[in-house]
Simulated assay, not measured.
Amino acid sequence: MQDTAERASQFLRSLANQDRLLLLCQLTEGERCVSDLEALTGIRQPSLSQQLGILRREGLIEPRKEGKRVFYQLADPRVTAMLQQLYDIFCTNYGEHE
């Protein structure tokens, strides 16, 4: 059980950053190139590269190179499941407690 708790904790740490969460939310809609991610999220270099690097190292996203452009897509189905839960809690009437 301790190993499972450690893996879950690491997964949650990967999501527990506003920029990374924004990037992952954009990628739930499909593959995106870096310039699109920058425009959609407002995250500027070098922070964008840093956060994409963390998500890549954690195995949550995977890159695909096409010429000089790099595209990213989700690589871990747990991300989609977790983001759906977060959406249900924070982005629906259920989650509106302000």
Rank of each mutant, 00 (worst) to 15 (best):
E62C: 12
V70P: 06
Q18A: 13
Q45P: 14
A81T: 08
D76M: 06
R57L: 14
I89G: 00
L22A: 14
R32M: 09
G95Y: 00
Q18N: 12
Q2V: 15
R44V: 14
G42M: 04
Q84D: 04
D88M: 07
Q84S: 08
E29L: 09
L21D: 00
A8K: 13
P63I: 08
E31G: 11
R57A: 15
Q26F: 09
R13S: 07
E98D: 14
G30V: 08
E6I: 15
L52T: 06
R57F: 03
T41Q: 00
R7N: 04
Y94N: 14
N93V: 13
T80L: 13
R69P: 06
E38V: 12
V34Y: 04
T4Q: 06
L22T: 12
L22I: 10
Y72Q: 01
G59D: 07
Q18C: 06
A39R: 11
L52A: 03
S9Y: 15
N17E: 02
R56D: 12
R44Y: 09
T80A: 13
R20A: 02
R7C: 00
Y87C: 01
T92F: 04
E96D: 14
Q50Y: 13
Q51L: 06
C33L: 10
A39Y: 02
R56Y: 12
M1T: 11
Q2P: 11
E98C: 10
T41I: 07
Q45V: 11
F90T: 06
S49E: 06
V79S: 01
K65S: 06
M82G: 02
A81F: 02
F11Q: 05
Q84A: 05
Q45A: 15
A16F: 11
L60N: 08
D76N: 12
R78G: 07
L60D: 03
N17R: 02
G42L: 04
I43Q: 01
S9N: 15
R20T: 05
S47I: 11
G95A: 12
C25K: 12
C25Y: 09
E96I: 13
R13F: 09
